[in-house]
């Protein structure tokens, strides 16, 4: 995927404790510090379940999107289930906050 993402999305996973608190706080801090525009949502699972209309606006149809959330396989099919499928796998990079360390996640999210 291109190195300049047109969108950055951060999922807070607010309804569960599956993403370590320290990781999600450090990632949010880094995004806030970065000076970049970004989208953040309380809980992608919750939005997908309700088919929240905003989910249709979270991915960039023509450019690229980087998402800080959980396992890429889960996030990909969650968007699909919410009727907002990834435009193509190449256009969306999911970075796993359950497994990766905050500095690595930030580097992947913010690299240009």
């Amino acid at each position: 995927m291109s190195d300049t993402p047109s969108k950055i999305l951060y999922c807070r996973c607010a309804f569960a404790k599956v993403v370590p608190d320290g990781v999600k706080t450090e990632v949010l801090d880094g995004l806030c510090e970065s000076g970049k525009s970004f989208e953040s949502v309380a809980d992608l699972c919750e939005m997908a379940a309700r088919k929240d209309p905003r989910i249709q606006t979270l991915l960039d149809e023509s450019g690229t999107t980087r998402i800080a959330a959980c396992y890429p396989r889960a996030v990909k099919w969650l968007f699909h289930q919410a009727e907002a499928p990834f435009p193509s796998d190449d256009q969306v990079e999911v970075i796993n906050m359950r497994e990766e360390k905050a500095p690595d996640i930030l580097e992947k999210l913010l690299k240009s």
Binding site: P5, R12, L28, S37, F38, E39, A42, L58, L59, D60
Partner: peptide, 25 residues
Amino acid sequence: TATLLDKGYSVKRITENVANESTSP
């Protein structure tokens, strides 16, 4: 931002760097 997210809101931050902004219908 963190408190709003923890309360269930969606929050979008827009900076000068709006090259990042591409709107979907």
